[in-house]
Amino acid sequence: MAKIPHLVQYQGSKRNLAPEIIRYFPDKINRIIEPFAGTCAVTILSAYEKKGDKFIVNDINQPLIELMRECVNNPERLYQSYKKIWEGQFLNGEDNNTYFYKMREQFNAGDHEPAKMLFLLARVVKGAIRYNSQGMMNQSCDKRRFGTKPDVIFENAIRISELLKGKIEFYSLDYKEIFEIAKSGDLVYLDPPYQGTSNRKNPRDNRYIQGVDFDEFVDSLYKLSCKGVNYIVSYDGKTGDKSIGKLLPDELGLTHLYINAGPSAQATLNGKNEITYESLYVSKGLVRKSDRYQQLCFKFA
């Protein structure tokens, strides 16, 4: 079986967990909506598995959403532009790390060309974009590698375009505006910035261009429920015996499950062998009896 295409490594992407997440998608879906789309891992897998044929993706990080728009609508142009930028790091005897910082400086000055965003994502440490308090990208480059080769970008971009072109709408709005678009019959998958990454006193976190307030998010989910829209939320979780963040309230009527996200990188660095479980909150109408049984087994194991 062919590998599921993905454009670039991106910290926080649900690419590895997407097969478990889409298990809870209903058989009949009007539109699949991702208000916090990132690099669209769940949308791409949903299209590959024919879970839907109409998609709405949104991310408040506009350069990121423009990158995905270019990938879907103009994959060959994205490839050619990326190839030119990628090859530039080996020309004129310039140190390739210095070249990265020159590209980052141009991006922060307002040059948000999709291929430039892609190059920066391909070269930052752990695929993890970081921002300072002024919203400027400030993550360092990974000195051990040169970024994804253009031919790999080309292959994946073409395949993503084949899956999604003509079936997808792109937005860069506040997530609450996307909630207004959702209707009964749609399926909304939410992967917001996790708790501890933002609050009212510090709305910007270096991991995200903009954070999400917990109470506002809960209120917005209530409104989505009142509209009769089914949704699934990836949100925090637990590592070992340590819970991360507040649970979403029972009053939302969601079923709370856990997905094994693998060994905790931080615990491994500290010499511990602990597994991270990510919370998955699912509209109850989407959960089968067998899934509820698995939930109980996990809870009381």
Rank of each mutant, 00 (worst) to 15 (best):
N108S: 03
A109I: 01
G110D: 12
E113H: 09
P114H: 10
P114V: 11
A115R: 02
A115K: 03
A115H: 00
M117P: 02
L120A: 03
L121S: 04
R123T: 07
R123C: 11
R123Y: 03
V124C: 15
K126E: 13
A128R: 02
I129T: 10
I129Y: 12
I129V: 13
R130V: 07
G135Y: 09
M136T: 05
M136F: 15
S140A: 12
C141Y: 00
C141F: 07
C141A: 10
D142Y: 03
K143T: 11
R144N: 13
T148E: 15
T148K: 14
K149E: 15
D151L: 15
I153K: 03
E155H: 13
E155V: 11
S161K: 06
E162Y: 09
E162R: 10
E162H: 09
L163C: 05
K165R: 15
K165V: 13
G166Q: 12
K167T: 04
K167D: 01
F170H: 01
F170R: 02
Y171K: 11
Y171F: 15
S172T: 12
D174A: 04
Y175M: 01
Y175C: 02
K176T: 15
K176L: 06
F179A: 04
E180F: 06
I181C: 07
A182N: 09
G185P: 02
L190H: 03
P192K: 05
P193E: 03
N199H: 12
N199G: 10
K201H: 10
K201W: 02
N202C: 01
N202F: 11
P203F: 10
N206M: 09
Y208A: 13
I209C: 11
Q210F: 11
G211S: 07
G211P: 00
D213Y: 09
D213E: 14
